[in-house]
Amino acid sequence: MKSAVWRDARVYLKYIRMHFLSGLEYKGWWMMALQVLLVCVADFLPSFLIFARMGDIGAWTWERILLIYALAVASFGLAESFCRGFDYFPWHMLRSGNFDRLLLRPRSLAVQVAGSFFHIHRLARAAIGIFAAVWALSRLGVPATAFSVGVIGLALLGGTLVYSGVFVLCSGIAFFTIKALDWIYILTNASYQVTRIPIDYMPGLFRRAFTFLMPMLVISYYPAAVVCGWGEPVAAGFLALPAGAAFLGLSLLVWKLGVRHYQSTGS
């Protein structure tokens, strides 16, 4: 059992390495990275401009919003980089019939799918997210102690699991229907936009949905609050990893149901 997990990990790393090297051969990769970078900056620009013009909203400065938002974006970027295969799965694996081939290989299906695509330029989103978070932390005067680094590190790890979970969930649903997949954007690109709303002004329904259904705030707001001392219980800052693992776990269950459905109905 242990050796199977180890072999799966080894295969995953080999796949990523292969995609990375063949991606480098494509000379335009840095242009695409730049493009992703610009999109990320442009995304946050409106928030910054509003704050610059209108001033802070109570205790909420633009640095605070940036920190929370950056944690969510970095998590999304990391998941998008290392779980790209699931993001692509419904279109590039399922519809093409290439999934059959994965079923014929003696390795975990999830690992094979996760490693089936990797795009270098997607790392740009992760990189700028992490950079922005660190920058916001320094402007907010948070020292780089073991505590703060630990909480933020766990937040990113948990966040990566949450977003990987979203892609896995989406792929699982794709086994049943391709048509109903558009609403999944609420969970991907739209979800981190939510983190731009100062939490005190966030409608209760949103707040609960993005804490308990999809633990967005658990991986962004709460760790940020605990590190900066905004009056949330310290324990809440450490929930990112377990929440992310739980979300990914549930998504994997849906995915497994999907695989079983696929094997019994054919493509």
Partner: peptide
């Protein structure tokens, strides 16, 4: 079952790990 963009030898090396 070969990987489209990589050399045949690299595909074989990947299969070595897969199996």
């Amino acid at each position: 079952q070969l990987w489209w963009d990589v050399s045949v030898a690299d595909s074989f090396a990947l299969l070595k790990d897969v199996y």
